[in-house]
Design a protein around this nucleic acid. Sequence first.
DNA 1: AATTATAACTTGTATATACAAGATAGTAAA
DNA 2: TTTACTATCTTGTATATACAAGTTATAATT
Lengths: 238, 238
Amino acid sequence: MQNKYLLIYREIADKIQAGTFKAGEKLPSEHELVQTYSTSRETIRKALNQLAQNGYIQKVQGKGSIVLDTQKFDFPVSGLVSFKELADNLGESHKTYVEKLALIEPDDFLQTQLHALPQEGIWEVHRVREIENERIILDKDFFKQMYVEKLTEEICRNSIYDYIENELHMMISFAKKEITVGEPTDEDRKYLDLEGFSNIVVVKNYVYFDDASLFQYTESRHRPDRFKFVDFARRSSV
Amino acid sequence: MQNKYLLIYREIADKIQAGTFKAGEKLPSEHELVQTYSTSRETIRKALNQLAQNGYIQKVQGKGSIVLDTQKFDFPVSGLVSFKELADNLGESHKTYVEKLALIEPDDFLQTQLHALPQEGIWEVHRVREIENERIILDKDFFKQMYVEKLTEEICRNSIYDYIENELHMMISFAKKEITVGEPTDEDRKYLDLEGFSNIVVVKNYVYFDDASLFQYTESRHRPDRFKFVDFARRSSV
DNA sequence: AATTATAACTTGTATATACAAGATAGTAAA
DNA sequence: TTTACTATCTTGTATATACAAGTTATAATT
């Protein structure tokens, strides 16, 4: 209940998704919004810039803010969303199987990926994601133990992000994502229902904390037919 | 470009990429930057927010702005970049073959995708992208004629974006992107060096102008082994 | 009727001030 | 020594003002 501009952002975003503000129409002008929310123009502008950033509106100088068609965002994978948040959002039935949970010492590959020392403790978690009775995603997560002391199977079966943010009170902030297509490994064939697919989509994730320290490396391996990635991109202004 | 905050953004971004500001170190404080550029704090903050948005720095309240490791961005596909810009950037040898250039009337699929009328003129362009002597990308572009009156093979062989922005002076603003994996069509097999690959990466692009009008629909079909997508994502703040 | 000028909107940029809140180092008290 | 406080850094939020610049409709002129 403190951030004025985030509250306004949320309220307008909700109204757009609810259809109160329809795609193609214009939002009230900044001046009008200033009066509606009895705040300053800069605060309104902060909220509107967030909306533009996230693809809700398009601002046009001299004209106004045009509401974009957000209905097409059928699969909001863009950004940083955990599997649980995503599956909950889609309302699909899903299950998670924890296939591995171990405290290991990193090999060369992990040492470079995680900026870790040879003797440092690393949590390795393998999880299979089942959607509508098909095992279609294999998530291989590596966490530095210095950030997450203790991990249980119970935590892994739910959301590790949830645990970190709500129990450990650390803020996950940003990630670098890399999508490629490769050949399935024996591990993929063992854990996933590949059904003859000869390719696998590999999403590598480097997750950072609020203070820019690298915290997690994840490899998410998807059966190609069930993979979809949606992104909203603005052409860089410079 | 007279924009003070964009100039400051560019200058700091350049210094980060040149290594003047190194990854892990902190930028000068906002107060110091105010004095360096003899401007106001809000202007500095606008520049810093752009840097944060584009993955150059991470701001931490009470501490400062930490420079992130941008060297790892080996393939800056994130955002909205044309094939020509990308290939030039990577310094790889590349060629474009225009396989089709026609003014058509849209079928049902295109009418919905482009919000077009049945009798409306649509430019259809098929281009094959060759990198290092391998035909690995098939781009199928559809433009509304009401925006682009005339297209020539010469223009298509170079960059259509270039033509639109520099000749027609229209600003391309944002795009929605969708990445999936599918089976190759006969067309893919005909035009691309598939070398036995049984999957194809399909990138669908919806490109919008500055004024939020939908301008182009593109389907970019990639041979899976040569496909790579890199993204920088911030966890949404709300 | 067609063109031009003007006034009134709109958003964009730049500046200044005030206070809130997180981080940190040094000092004083236990 | 340890703990607690305080002063002083840092960035975050909110406000006000001024002017620039793009858009649009209306009025005035040709």
